[in-house]
């Protein structure tokens, strides 16, 4: 589904990704771990097409199409979803309006009819419940004044509404209490399916107790330096990342 080959990228002349490879097939869940500043969020931003992130080499194919040929909104419409590490606050636009605009756009690109306002509101309320967000969050400005945990749940809510093919979750677990973690994990697990793939960026192995990955990768200094199964996450939790310097000189 997603094939990243030797990807290199930079921001404002600062090289961040240096030859990154990753192959994600439908139905798989990949976890990416790695020290702060390694480039995990950058990877997400580059894949989603954030302005200012310059791809300097390599390729990324999504369902056989080169991602870098697409505008950010086209990528989203094609089914790529990035749950932001730091969701953006947009005062003045209600969450509901935002969600509807987004769902309409994605549905239109799939040739689906727009949902009527009534149907949409019903759906949104349902999903709200699923992620344990009170319904008045739909009326508030997008992420405006939401707590850290609420923002993360709002990301999940959007993911559930858009039903993407590939979900990239950037530290969706950070800042969540145990109950919220459970909620997020349930949401993600509910979306797991043979034709959907997930990339879960996290610092904590505990999330992987709930969302069991097929593969675990370590991203450091702009590349994947180690890959393995679940057990790699446990190992990392014990050892930290000190060994990287020795191994990747």
């Amino acid at each position: 589904m997603l094939k990243i080959d030797n990807l290199a990228a930079q921001v404002e002349d600062k090289v961040i990704l240096r030859g990154l490879n990753l192959d994600v097939k439908a139905g798989e869940v990949h976890a990416i771990m790695g020290p702060n500043g390694a480039g995990k969020s950058t990877l997400g931003h580059v894949l989603a097409g954030r302005a200012g992130y310059e791809v300097t080499g390599g390729s990324a194919d999504f369902d056989g199409q080169s991602l870098f040929d697409l505008e950010p909104e086209e990528r989203a419409q094609a089914g790529l979803f990035l749950a932001f590490q730091y969701p953006v606050e947009i005062p003045g636009v209600s969450n509901m309006e935002f969600l509807k605009a987004s769902v309409d756009a994605v549905r239109a690109s799939r040739g689906q009819e727009a949902l009527s306002s009534m149907d949409f509101i019903k759906l949104a309320r349902e999903k709200c419940q699923a992620v344990d967000l009170p319904q008045d969050f739909l009326k508030r400005g997008v992420n405006e004044g939401f707590s850290g945990g609420e923002k993360k749940r709002n990301e999940l809510l959007q993911m559930m509404l858009l039903e993407p093919k590939l979900c990239i979750l950037d530290e969706t677990d950070s800042g969540l209490d145990i109950d919220a973690l459970q909620v997020v994990a349930n949401g993600v697990n509910a979306l797991r399916s043979p034709d959907r793939a997930m990339i879960v960026v996290t610092h904590y192995q505990r999330l992987l107790d709930y969302i069991v990955p097929d593969y675990v990768h370590v991203l450091a200094k702009g590349k994947i330096v180690k890959s393995g199964g679940r057990e790699l996450a446990l190992e990392l939790e014990k050892q930290g990342y000190g060994w990287i310097d020795e191994e990747v000189a």
Binding site: E71, P72, E73, A76, F81, G141
Partner: peptide, 20 residues
């Protein structure tokens, strides 16, 4: 970018941001 990443067209995103 947040709008675009959710599949909303650029012109529409700009209008919504202006409104906001």
């Amino acid at each position: 970018f947040y709008f675009l990443a959710r599949g909303i067209r650029r012109e529409e995103a700009e209008v919504m941001l202006n409104f906001a």
